[in-house]
């Protein structure tokens, strides 16, 4: 299988620790997944609300660049950010479904010297870890079993909706299986795919803040001592606003929220700095086996 890595803009900013820990974990597992040369913004949620066709063309440019790297096998493009994963998949589907859109995008790409034939496969790292690498290989790489760590696996919206075929849309399991393979306990909780508020936390704070708070409160109630996320915006909302939540809701909420790849890195015995633990607002040291 030939992989390329599409980090997306957030993983070079607020979600830097996701980028660092993912690359470190790839390395530990002997995976070859270099960064897609010349990648640009995927188009994301905000762009989609200004001009949909342009957003699709932006996403398609990345797919065209990835396709250029095709050898005998098609490229599997790994997109860890939930929004990138959704948009890249969406443009694939929509180009196949809507002839007019396909034509506009194909002609526009051609004008800048690019082509896209629809051969790239967009993959989420959860899918790659569980279905390509396999849990046995992950287990074998564990040097520090995460004993006593109770993880609320939080998938968020756009990893599983509406396109993911690798997991269940209502009760996904891949992250839970991964956490169990690391020696941690995946906590059973019902809000795995409920929205964190997305960009509302920045635009209509009153609504966004409460949506994230509901998730943290429920995870704590279910006995979790850490929450694992698979999306840079979810991680940002759930972690960086906890101080504000304490003030707004008069609650003592204080739950570490880490990228699932940071938790993997910890179990693999990787150095804290390599997996970006120092970048977290809520220190993970308090959680068992994470110090």
């Amino acid at each position: 299988m030939r992989y390329l890595y599409y980090p997306g803009c957030s993983l070079k900013g607020t979600g830097k620790a996701y980028d660092e820990s993912l690359v470190a974990v790839f390395d530990k597992l002997g995976m070859d997944a270099k960064e897609l040369p010349g990648w640009n913004c995927c188009g994301a949620t905000a762009y989609m609300s200004v001009d949909e066709t342009k957003a699709f063309a932006l996403a398609a440019r990345n797919l065209a660049l990835a396709e250029q790297e095709n050898g005998s096998d098609p490229i599997h493009l790994i997109a860890p950010c939930a929004a990138c994963y959704l948009v890249l998949n969406k443009v694939q589907k929509y180009m196949a479904e809507y002839g007019h859109l396909r034509e506009v995008i194909a002609n526009s790409l051609k004008a800048v010297g690019l082509n896209y034939h629809g051969t790239v496969k967009v993959r989420h790292p959860l899918d790659v870890f569980v279905n390509d690498i396999g849990l046995d290989k992950i287990k074998a790489a564990v040097s520090h079993p995460l004993k006593g760590l109770k993880v609320a696996s939080y998938y968020g919206c756009q990893v599983v909706r509406p396109y993911a075929e690798f997991d269940d849309q209502y009760n996904p399991q891949t992250m839970d299986q991964l956490m169990n393979a690391l020696g941690a306990d995946a906590v059973d909780w019902p809000l795995k795919t409920r929205c964190c508020g997305g960009t509302l936390t920045g635009t209509v704070e009153e609504a966004g803040l409460r949506m994230s708070y509901i998730l943290l409160k429920e995870a704590s109630k279910r006995g979790a001592n850490i929450m694992a996320t698979a999306c840079p915006l979810c991680q940002f909302n759930l972690e960086c606003y906890q101080g504000k939540m304490r003030g707004t809701f008069g609650d003592s909420i204080d739950l570490p929220v880490a990228f699932f790849t940071q938790i993997m890195g910890r179990a693999f015995g990787l150095e804290a700095k390599r997996i970006g633990l120092q970048r977290l607002f809520v220190p993970v040291k308090a959680a068992p086996a994470m110090a």
Partner: peptide
């Protein structure tokens, strides 16, 4: 915590290709 870049993050290669791509979308539409 190094989670916000002070400098401007730029793509590798020629960013004007993005502008040209966007302009072409308008033409094609």
């Amino acid at each position: 915590r190094g989670r916000m870049a002070l400098g401007v993050e730029k793509m590798e290669g020629d960013p004007t290709q993005i502008r040209r791509l966007m302009e072409q979308v308008e033409v094609e539409e």
